[in-house]
Amino acid sequence: MEEIQKLICISCPKGCSLEVTVDGDTVVKVSGETCKKGVDYAEKEITDPRRMIATTVRVKNGFHPLVPVYSLQPVPKPLIRDVLKELRKVELAAPVKQGSIVLENVLGTGVNIIASRDMPVS
């Protein structure tokens, strides 16, 4: 049984409106995209929706008390809150280098959480 779902692509700031024809869990057709990312996004969003995560973690002796971090790839949407919970437990020690891994393979997702910036010692 085919049905049409409307999605908004979040791959880039354009935010294209997509019409996705699905049959059960299978994407049959995507329209409305203006680049290839739209098709990828639609397929992923129907079968395994994922989101980038950006937050902060505590840092000891840092120039600021927090260091911003983000997921290098999107993590499964249902796990967002659990990932945040893991990150709340983290406390780094300054200095921190940008790109250094804060949590490796977080919750077995295969995604690394990395530091968004250097955090020098205070």
Binding site: P68, Y70, Q98, R117, D118
Partner: peptide, 10 residues
């Protein structure tokens, strides 16, 4: 690339 603000600035 899809960067956070601090990475872009850095």
């Amino acid at each position: 690339e899809d960067l956070p603000g601090p990475s872009y600035a850095q």
